[in-house]
Design a protein around this nucleic acid. Sequence first.
DNA 1: AATAATTTTTAGTTTTGTCTAAATTTATTT
DNA 2: AAATAAATTTAGACAAAACTAAAAATTATT
Lengths: 217, 217
Amino acid sequence: MTYSEENYIKVIYHLSLVSPKGINTNAIAGMIESKASSVTDMLKKLADKELVNYQKYQGVTLTQKGLHAAKMIVRKHRLWEVFLVEKLDFTWDEVHDLAEELEHIKSEKLINRLDEYLGFPKEDPHGDPIPDRYGQLVKVDKQLLSEILPSKKVICLGVKDSSPSFLKYLDKHQIALGSEIEVVNKESFDHSLSILINNRQILISNKIASNLYVKLI
Amino acid sequence: MTYSEENYIKVIYHLSLVSPKGINTNAIAGMIESKASSVTDMLKKLADKELVNYQKYQGVTLTQKGLHAAKMIVRKHRLWEVFLVEKLDFTWDEVHDLAEELEHIKSEKLINRLDEYLGFPKEDPHGDPIPDRYGQLVKVDKQLLSEILPSKKVICLGVKDSSPSFLKYLDKHQIALGSEIEVVNKESFDHSLSILINNRQILISNKIASNLYVKLI
DNA sequence: AATAATTTTTAGTTTTGTCTAAATTTATTT
DNA sequence: AAATAAATTTAGACAAAACTAAAAATTATT
Ligand SMILES: [Mn+2]
Ligand SMILES: [Mn+2]
Ligand SMILES: [Mn+2]
Ligand SMILES: [Mn+2]
């Protein structure tokens, strides 16, 4: 598999988690920052290699083989992110782009050794699950903070958006994975939230709240 | 710089160390396992980017810019090799091919953090020097074992050939970096050597001896 | 100095992955 | 059910990096 093929497979995988039916050409083009015609070309190639099920105009799904390949790329991406944060002291907003490169290094042995070296982590620095060497992953039950009712207490488990700007916002407000948050009030007009975190009460917008994964304590 | 351009620059650098005059098209083609015509095409491109000095039929040399780029690639290659051996328990015969991939990961910050994490090593697992972040490298005075006179004692510093087959040969005969070797006898007919290592006397061919770097104790 | 051998370059293709523009299919409105 | 809009595919082109075969330049040999 080429670098480019791997990126397509990974994007189709991520889109499949959100909408389990056939994935649109345009959705893929959007994620990969290319044009629909380029996507069509690639889908034919991936179908030839039996990595995707593709029929003209009908969208695309991963085959078993494609799904496994995708999980292995995600595994590599997330293990490298853990390495960068845990061992090389990178911050959680710095690692994604680097992992985009590192995820294409082709060696099962390397990634399994890295996994072992890191102590077989189950989650990456953004709270996303890391598939094991067989593609198995632990699905933790999480909700978006925006869905939590007032007076409930939650613990922060992960982020939906892992862009540097969002992560830096969280750092600034001292919201980290593991933080305890109490929803004090929900504003019905704009769906903003008053939350209690680290004994301080702060106001966050709905956009923030709908990008934070939490679970009830 | 593309993956391929980086490989060419690195090969020209390695060839320059052996013969400091202009590097031949064919020599490059041999190292990179491509054809002379492909090399000519690439040399034009590298000259456009001011990474090499190139004039038709006159061979090629690295510019200052090209030399620095080459050293940074070699730095990355060798630091990754150290990482794989020191942290992930790879053997010295397993790491070269992996480092060929890892050396293309583009991040100064990553490589400088890795350098720090590894304790700023001066040499890679094969005894080759690691350029620092400015391209500076410590040149250790070493000779080939084949040039050592009988009855002299040396310490093993590195390998010239770092192919898995040669490295495995050394492992099998318990010759490692740091090993003490005494040259007992040199056979004038085939230039093979009798050496004393780990209190055992063994016979090694000239080919082996001329791929082992040593220094007199 | 002329010829032969070797090396290097040029010319013309190929493959991969991308693009634009046009054509086709599917979905949405009127 | 047409007509219109949107999504998707096809056709044709291009750049990167490789190739083969032929031409040109350099080097070695007679
Ligand atoms: Mn990431
Ligand atoms: Mn992540
Ligand atoms: Mn190496
Ligand atoms: Mn090495």
